[in-house]
C-alpha cells in the first residue's frame, strides 16, 4: 500500500457560528459524503461572539482528508477549519466516566489500578465506583480494558478535544 492510499487518522478543529442547525450541517456532510467520524465534540467557546468549536476525529486517505477540510471550509457558517494533525503540533485529551461494580478483591484491584491512571473517584457506594479519567483516547481505552474483568458496567466518554501547542490561536 503506497502513501496515497494509506488511511490516516486526523483531528480537525472547526470554528463555527453557533446558529441553529450548524451541527447538523457538519454531521450531514460526513454522512452524506461517506466520511468517517471517530469522535466529535462540540461546545460554545465564545459566548459574546456566539462561536462554537467542533473537534472531529476522522480517518481517510490524504486525498479524502484534504477533501474533508475543503468541504468543511465551504459550509457557510464555518469560520475556520484547522487540520490539527498536519498543520500543528496538537495535544489531544478525552475524559471518561467509568462505572465499576463489585465487591472484595476486584473492588480493591479496581481502586488500585485507577490510581496508576490518575483516575479520580467521583462517586462511590459499597458496591461501586465511578472513576473520572482523562487522557489520550488510547489511555482511556487501556483503562476501560483493565476495568472490564473487574466489574465494568457503564462508560460515558466525551470524545476528543484538541488544541495546538504554542502561543497561537487556531
Amino acid at each position: 500500500m503506497n502513501a496515497e492510499n494509506k488511511v490516516e487518522r486526523h483531528t480537525m478543529a472547526v470554528l463555527v457560528d453557533n446558529e441553529a442547525g450548524v451541527l447538523a450541517r457538519v454531521i450531514g456532510l460526513f454522512s452524506g459524503r461517506g466520511y468517517n467520524i471517530e469522535s466529535l465534540t462540540v461546545a460554545e467557546v465564545d459566548q459574546a461572539e456566539h462561536t462554537s468549536r467542533i473537534t472531529v476525529v476522522t480517518t481517510g486517505t490524504p486525498m479524502v482528508i484534504e477533501q474533508i477540510k475543503a468541504q468543511l471550509d465551504r459550509i457557510v457558517p464555518v469560520h475556520k477549519v484547522v487540520d490539527l494533525t498536519t498543520e500543528t503540533h496538537a495535544i489531544e485529551r478525552e475524559m471518561a466516566m467509568v462505572k465499576v461494580a463489585g465487591t472484595g478483591e476486584k473492588r480493591v484491584e479496581a481502586l488500585r489500578l485507577s490510581d496508576a491512571f490518575r483516575a479520580r473517584v467521583i462517586d462511590t457506594t459499597h458496591t461501586s465506583f465511578v472513576f473520572e479519567v482523562t487522557g489520550t483516547p488510547e489511555k482511556i481505552d487501556a483503562f476501560i480494558g483493565l476495568m472490564r474483568p473487574l466489574g465494568l458496567v457503564d462508560v460515558s466518554r466525551t470524545g476528543v478535544v484538541a488544541i495546538a501547542r504554542g502561543p497561537e490561536a487556531m
Binding site: 486525498m63 484534504e66 477533501q67 475543503a70 468541504q71 471550509d73 465551504r74
Partner: peptide
C-alpha cells in the same frame, strides 16, 4: 472558485 473541487476526483 470552490477549493473542494480541487483534488476531489483527480489529483
Amino acid at each position: 472558485i470552490d477549493a473542494s473541487s480541487i483534488n476531489k476526483n483527480v489529483r
